[in-house]
Design a protein around this nucleic acid. Structure first.
Length: 565
RNA sequence: CGGGGUAUAGCUCAGCCUGGUAGAGCGCUAGCUUUGGGAGCUAGAUGUCGAGAGUUCGAAUCCCUCUACCCCGACCA
C-alpha cells in the first residue's frame, strides 16, 4: 500500500474521556471514530487490523473443522419467545418494530437462530457432529458502554455452535474448540490464560473463559502459583481452613459502638483485626430474609450466594426498612447473636471457625465482643460464600492463589439440550428414535481482541503490534525524495520486490518530514521500519529498525529482503 | 435507574460566575524559507455557541423544557 493513496488520520489530541490506553491510542492512531455511545466506525487503518484478527480466527476455526455460515443480525421476536428469552434477556436486548408493527431484535447472540437453522437442516445422526460458526456484528445495549471498542454496544464477534447426538461427543468438540482457541491467542501473540468460569443461569457443566492479562481488565481472575489452576474469581473455590474452630475463651460482652458501622470503623474502634470480626448481611431469600456471614476481611461472592437454595437467582440486599422491621436496628449493627429463628444463618467456611469474634449487636450503636458460634449464635449451615483472596490455598491443592486482572476475549460453553429442547431440534438416531441435539457454543470477541492487544503492547510512542495483527508488517520510509530522485526509485524497486515476495508492506510516500513520518509509524505500531534516504542510497544501505528496538542497523538490500523472507 | 457533569470552528478546549463586536492551540488553504525525530514566518478560510421556549433594549452567558454524550453508584452491615 502506498500511503499517499491511503487514508491515515493520526491526531495529536485525544478527548479527555478516553480513559484506558487502548482507547486513547486507537483514537490517536485514527483506527476508530465514535458515532454515538458504544458505536464506532472502523477507519481503513483500524479495519486492516480487525481483518487480520478475523483471518487468524477464521483459519483456526476452519482448521478445527468448523463450517462458516452467516446468519441475520436482525431476528424475529417469535423465535426468542420460543426460548423465553424475549423477556428474560433483559435490557441488553435491543428491540425494534418493522413497518408492519412486528417486533424484532438486533441479535446479541445467535443460539435461537442457529438452532432454528439446525432443526430445519438436520434430520439424521449421520449429519453429526457439526459446528457452524460466523463472524458477525452483534448488538448488546450495555448499561454503560465504555473504553472504546472494549465495551462497545455494537461489536464484532465470532460465534460458533456445535451439534451432537451425545454429551460425550459434545465434550470432545468442547476440548477441540478449547485447543483451537489456545492456538488462536497463541498465534496472535497475546499473553492469555484459559480460566474456569461460572456456568451462570444456563447451568452447564464445564465452561472456560479466555482472558488476555491486562491491568485494565474488567474481570478478576485467580490462578495458582504452583499449578495450571486458573478460574474467574466468581468461580474460584475458597477452600475450607486447615484448622478447626477453637473453644470459646472469652465471655460474650455487649459493647457500645455509637457511630461505628462498617468493619473498618468497628475494628479500628475496638482494636480488633478485621479478621476477628464477623460481617453479617441480610438478603431477600425465597422465603423471608436470610443472613449471610463472612469474616470481616472477606467479601461475599454474589455468584456463590446466588446458588444457595434459600436465595433467588439474583439475590437482592434487604433495604434499611426491612432490616429495621425484622431486627429493630439499622444496617451496620447486624449480627448472628439473637437473630429471629425465622432467619437462616448461612456462614462461610472461614467465618465458621472464628472464635471470640466481634459482630453486630442487632441494636443501634452496639456490637458484641467475644461472640462464639453455638454457645451464643445459631449457625444453620456452612458454605463457601466468599471471594478468594491472594494467598488462599489453591483448590487443586498445589500452590497459592494469586489474583490478576483479565479481559475476557473468548468463552467456550457446553449448552447441552436447553435450546434444542425449547426449539425442538432433533435428529433420528441409529435406532430410529428421535433424539434432542446436544449443543455447545463458543465465542470470541474479535473487535475486543484489537483493544486487548494494545493494552498489552504499547509504549510511550504508541502501539507496538504483534506482527500477526499489524496493519502492515513493514513500512518503507522515504526521506526527502525530492532532493534525490534515486531515493524514490530505490524505494519503489524495493517496495515492488517485497510485494512480489508476498510481504505485507507499506510505502510511506506521503512526503512528510522525517520526524512526522517516524512518529506516525510508531504511533500506528508497524513492527518493522526501513528508511530509504539519500545517504543510504549513496552507501548502498538501508536503515532498519524494529518497533520494539531502540537501535537501528544498516542493512544491505539482500539483508532487508532476507529479513522478510 | 439514581447522583453529578458536559454540549462553543474539522479536532482539543477557553469564554458563562458578573448579559453588550465569537476566542486560543492544533488541523486546513496559499506563499516564502526549511528538510533524519511531530519546522518557522506571513497571509487566509471556517461557527445554527446541542434543540426549543422564555426573561431582557440586548442572551454562548440568566430561567425552563427536551435531546445527546461523559463520569460515579450494584455489598454498607
Amino acid at each position: 500500500m502506498r500511503l499517499s493513496k491511503f487514508h491515515l488520520a493520526t491526531v495529536k489530541e485525544v478527548p479527555a474521556d478516553a480513559e484506558i490506553v487502548s482507547h486513547q491510542l486507537m483514537l490517536r492512531a485514527g483506527m476508530i471514530r465514535k458515532l454515538a455511545a458504544g458505536l464506532y466506525t472502523w477507519s481503513p487503518l483500524g479495519l486492516r487490523v480487525l481483518r487480520k484478527v478475523e483471518a487468524v480466527v477464521r483459519e483456526e476455526m476452519n482448521r478445527a473443522g468448523a463450517i462458516e455460515v452467516l446468519m441475520p443480525a436482525v431476528q424475529p421476536r417469535e423465535l426468542w419467545e420460543e426460548t423465553g428469552r424475549w423477556e428474560k434477556f433483559g435490557g441488553q436486548l435491543l428491540k425494534m418494530k418493522d413497518r408492519k408493527e412486528a417486533w424484532y431484535c438486533f441479535g446479541p447472540t445467535h443460539e435461537e437462530v442457529v438452532t432454528d437453522f439446525a432443526r430445519a437442516e438436520l434430520h439424521s445422526y449421520k449429519q453429526l457432529p457439526l459446528n457452524f460458526y460466523q463472524i458477525q456484528t452483534k448488538f448488546r445495549d450495555e448499561i454503560r458502554p465504555r473504553f472504546g471498542v472494549m465495551r462497545a454496544r455494537e461489536f464484532l464477534m465470532k460465534d460458533a455452535y456445535s451439534f451432537h447426538l451425545s454429551a460425550e461427543c459434545l465434550e470432545r468438540e468442547y476440548w477441540n474448540m478449547y485447543n483451537a482457541y489456545t492456538r488462536i491467542f497463541t498465534r496472535l501473540e497475546l499473553k492469555f490464560r484459559p480460566v474456569q468460569a461460572d456456568a451462570g443461569a444456563i447451568g452447564g457443566s464445564v465452561t472456560h473463559e479466555f482472558h488476555v492479562l491486562a491491568e485494565s481488565g474488567e474481570d478478576a481472575i485467580a490462578f495458582s502459583d504452583g499449578s495450571d489452576y486458573a478460574a474467574n474469581v466468581e468461580k474460584a473455590e475458597a477452600m475450607a481452613p486447615a484448622t478447626g474452630r477453637t473453644a470459646p475463651a472469652a465471655a460474650l460482652e455487649r459493647v457500645a459502638t455509637p457511630t461505628q458501622r462498617s468493619i473498618d470503623e468497628v475494628s479500628g474502634f475496638l482494636g480488633v483485626a478485621a479478621a476477628g470480626c464477623l460481617k453479617t448481611i441480610l438478603v431477600r431469600g425465597n422465603d423471608g430474609l436470610v443472613a449471610l456471614c463472612v469474616r470481616g476481611d472477606h467479601e461475599i461472592n454474589e455468584i456463590k450466594a446466588s446458588k444457595l437454595a434459600e436465595l433467588p437467582g439474583e439475590p437482592v440486599l434487604a433495604d434499611e426498612a426491612e432490616i429495621v422491621k425484622a431486627l429493630g436496628c439499622k444496617p451496620g449493627f447486624i449480627g448472628p447473636v439473637g437473630l429471629p429463628d425465622s432467619i437462616p444463618v448461612i456462614v462461610d467456611r472461614d467465618a465458621a471457625v472464628l472464635a471470640d469474634f466481634v459482630c453486630g449487636g442487632n441494636q443501634d450503636g452496639s456490637h458484641y465482643r467475644g461472640a462464639n458460634w453455638l454457645r451464643d449464635a445459631r449457625l444453620s449451615r456452612v458454605e463457601d460464600l466468599r471471594k478468594v483472596v491472594d494467598g488462599d490455598a489453591s483448590p487443586d491443592g498445589k500452590g497459592q492463589i494469586r489474583l490478576a486482572r483479565g479481559i475476557e476475549v473468548g468463552h467456550v460453553f457446553q449448552l447441552g439440550t436447553k435450546y434444542a429442547e425449547a426449539l425442538n431440534a432433533s435428529v433420528i438416531d441409529q435406532s430410529g428414535k428421535s433424539q434432542v441435539l446436544a449443543m455447545g457454543c463458543y465465542g470470541i470477541g474479535v473487535s475486543r481482541i484489537v483493544a486487548a492487544a494494545i493494552e498489552q503492547n504499547f509504549d510511550a510512542a504508541g502501539i507496538v503490534w504483534p506482527e500477526p495483527m499489524a496493519p502492515w508488517r513493514v513500512v518503507l520510509c522515504l526521506i526527502n525524495p525530492k532532493n534525490d530522485t534515486n531515493v524514490a526509485a530505490v524505494a519503489d524497486a524495493l517496495y515492488a520486490d517485497l510485494q512480489a515476495r508476498g510481504v505485507d508492506v507499506a510505502l510511506d510516500d506521503r512526503g512528510l518530514r522525517a520526524g512526522g513520518m517516524f512518529a506516525d509509524m510508531e504511533l500506528i505500531g508497524i513492527p518493522h521500519r526501513v528508511v530509504v534516504s539519500e545517504r543510504g542510497v549513496a552507501a548502498g544501505t538501508f536503515e532498519y529498525r524494529a518497533r520494539r528496538d531502540s537501535e537501528s542497523r544498516q542493512l544491505s538490500r539482500d539483508e532487508v529482503l532476507a529479513l522478510f523472507a
